[in-house]
Amino acid sequence: MHWVTSFLLAFATSSDALIRFQCSQLVRERLDPLVSPGLAPSPHVHQIVGGNSFNVTMDPEKDMPGESTCTTCQFSQDFSNYWTAILYFRARNGTYKRVPQIANSGFAGATGGGMTVYYMQDPLYDTAQKSKVTAFKPGFRMFVGDLAARTKAQATRFRQLTYTCLETMGTRDHETVAFPAHPCNTGIMTSLRFPTCWDGINLDSPDHMAHMSYPESGTFESAGPCPASHPVRTSQVMFEVIWDTAQFAHEEWPEDGSQPFVWSFGDATGYANHGDYVFGWKDDSLQKILDQPCYVNCNGTDLGKTQSIADMNKCAGLPEVVHEDIDGWLTELPGGHQASYQ
């Protein structure tokens, strides 16, 4: 995929309704209220950004925006929560060390590195942003990925979950669906692109995926049509997370030449990359933004109220629910996992 550099370096433009913003780290721990609600600790460690109402259960019947008092995201109306697994480095002696995150270009100072979030009506390289899309509704949530995937064939369904080996912070080509097989000068960026076709009825489903679909043919980037079963076109939610793997470039990599990084649930292939999303925009603020050709100071109306990185950071750091070491050199991954290629 070819990316437009100006979109990556600028927070906003006045000619489109593409939304790109940074979120500081809210918390890192073994909680997953979407896949394993009420379970503390959950099976593996996640890193979470967004509204401070994030909790063990995340009851869909509650008014989530109303429950939050702040958000770690730049849009002050966005109390959604976005999360992914944590990346670890595995040394030759079998111990593990958490890989820190880096803030994306233009967002230096975001607590914990955080992640960059996009909402797109059309492909990122289509500056016109011509399409009309439907914003998600209160109570909406979704998941993308397959925790059991360990081969390229198993990951085919989720080919829009990719890795970029960053030579510089501006590198955006040569995406792969597996971990890069060699050291990356600046780090590894994971990109998670969620489905864009909704069934128009269900806010969730048992597997948190069935109510959503990728286009019937082609992709979001090629403007593929939605299937009849999922006729409502939504914006594409995308996460970008940059992992500071460069600091491990001089550590002892495996003698067999295999790459040394592993997800917090044990996947050493990279094929099981996944992400979680729980909608929490206040009122109809997201729809208003998506309906306009711009979103800040558009025709004199500030549709997108943003906060500074310093104010985002004030919301970071939820009190721990699960007390355990996730940062030291560990003999096993939190939750008892070990690196696995199968």
Rank of each mutant, 00 (worst) to 15 (best):
G275D: 00
G275W: 00
D276C: 14
D276M: 09
D276L: 07
Y277E: 06
V278Y: 03
V278N: 03
F279R: 01
G280E: 01
G280V: 02
G280F: 01
G280D: 02
W281N: 00
W281P: 00
D284W: 07
D284S: 14
D284N: 12
D284R: 07
S285Q: 14
S285W: 02
L286A: 02
Q287S: 12
Q287K: 10
K288M: 05
K288I: 04
I289T: 03
L290F: 14
L290N: 05
L290V: 13
L290M: 12
L290S: 07
D291A: 12
Q292H: 15
Q292C: 11
Q292A: 15
P293Q: 10
P293L: 13
P293A: 15
P293M: 06
C294I: 10
Y295L: 06
V296A: 08
V296Q: 04
N297C: 10
N297G: 08
N297E: 08
N297H: 15
C298V: 04
C298R: 04
C298D: 06
C298K: 07
C298E: 05
N299Q: 14
G300A: 04
G300F: 05
T301I: 07
T301S: 06
D302W: 05
L303Y: 10
L303R: 04
G304Q: 00
G304C: 03
K305I: 13
K305C: 07
K305A: 13
T306R: 09
T306N: 06
T306W: 05
Q307L: 10
Q307Y: 11
Q307A: 08
Q307K: 09
S308G: 14
I309R: 12
D311H: 13
M312W: 04
K314L: 11
C315R: 03
A316E: 01
G317P: 01
G317D: 05
L318F: 05
P319S: 11
P319Q: 09
P319N: 13
P319R: 10
E320R: 10
E320I: 07
E320Q: 14
E320F: 07
V321E: 11
V321Q: 09
V321N: 10
V322F: 04
V322P: 00
V322H: 03
H323N: 12
H323L: 06
E324K: 08
E324R: 12
E324I: 10
E324S: 09
D325W: 11
D325L: 09
D325I: 09
I326A: 15
I326P: 03
D327P: 05
D327C: 06
D327Y: 09
D327W: 15
